[in-house]
Design a protein around this nucleic acid. Structure first.
Lengths: 219, 219
DNA sequence: CGTTGTGAAATGATTCACAGCT
DNA sequence: AGCTGTGAATCATTTCACAACG
């Protein structure tokens, strides 16, 4: 077990992709998979796949490839999804409501166990089997239900404030759906999902494709 | 106007961030902004900001900074959001329903003008002012309403098929919410949004923080 | 054989540092 | 003075290419 040098950021992102691909191969009862196969399925080179995995140990078998079940287990362990995480949603608007019943979260090891909002007209209503709670209940529930992840689904202008409250209550990570950069201290992790950002990327690529590679963008 | 070398991928992602930040400065009636200010707000260095912007022309004014309104216009033009885009949602499940009324899309220049689903129990119902249409109406509506972007909000197992239908109908870009890699030919662009992927990134970072930088991940 | 793991080389992105403009 | 644009230097990531293994 080498002391392992530091992991490139892009590698971490790909880890989830590998896992997702492996899971589909388990369903098909495939026993082993080569870096070539795995790479092709995801649009990566075989060398990239091998290098990524090798950061974490020697999981492969020369001449054979990787055993699908074995590698799946390793990746789950690396990603920390070999046990379950409790999460709470803050914000019972469109996005909060859409996330609550998202079955894939549960399959991936994440259980949403509470939802909060401060709008009096939604407090007490039920969403996907959970009663909407006022924000003042947050600290108590985070403690009682061992909530480790806060999902921020409020408008941008409230996102930082809600984040601060979640962190004060004791969560270790924030999944942020609001289109702002959240400031947090180092002990807390943030991952962001920004729809409009992705749409803009798309618009850029389309414009590029229509004008030919990079014409008349500058005056 | 130099023939401009090719643009780094990360630069394109940051362009949207710059625009978002600038818009908040317009609201505050700020006339100019320096690369330092812009960078600090987004957690980037000033050099990074200048280099990114310089790929597209000389927008800055030495001694002054960038004029907020001017740079905003330039960025909108570069990103292709200086005109409006029509989009259609496919899939009237949780995610499709959440995306329909997402006001931010419209503010960013994207108008959702139709929603499709093949589940008979939702066809004909109204969501955010739009009647849900059957998939067979897709080609006609894409033509009639000049739809350039398809938003894929169906389960992973249908995503590729729906994508193919959208492309055949004539869209130029796909915003994909399904957790799969979509195969498309080069003339079409894809941007993906994957919640569970982001959650896994988060779990990884949290695990890392708890075990200390990278312990006992390999056997 | 086929396939991994890994140094070495190549490519890509960021930061430095400073000339030059206002 | 304050700030941009940019070549040069540094740092990061990917690809190459091959020895070693089952």
């Amino acid at each position: 077990m080498p002391p392992r040098s530091k992991i490139p950021r892009p590698t971490v992102k790909r880890l989830s992709l590998y896992l997702r691909e492996l899971e589909s191969h388990i369903e098909r009862d495939q026993q082993t998979i080569s870096s070539k196969q795995l790479g092709t399925a995801l649009g990566l080179t075989d060398a990239q796949v091998r290098k990524d995995l090798a950061y974490f140990g020697q999981f492969g078998h020369p001449g054979i490839g990787y055993r699908v079940q074995e590698l799946t287990n390793k990746l789950r362990h690396i990603l920390g999804t070999d046990h379950r995480w409790n999460a709470a949603v803050v914000g019972a608007g469109n996005i909060g409501r859409a996330v609550m019943p998202y079955a894939r979260f549960a399959r991936k090891g994440f259980d949403i166990v509470a939802i909060f909002d401060d709008n009096p007209s939604v407090i007490g209503t039920e969403i996907a089997g959970h009663k909407v709670r006022p924000m003042r209940d947050l600290p108590k529930l985070v403690r009682e239900r061992d909530i480790k992840i806060g999902i921020v689904a409020v408008p941008a202008s409230f996102a930082q404030q809600v984040t601060d409250e979640l962190i004060r209550a004791g969560v270790l990570g924030i999944l942020n759906f609001a289109p702002v950069r959240l400031d947090v201290h180092d002990a807390v992790s943030v991952a962001s999902v920004d729809f409009s950002l992705s749409l803009e990327q798309l618009a850029f690529q389309i414009s590029l494709g229509m004008t030919g590679p990079l014409e008349e963008l500058s005056p």
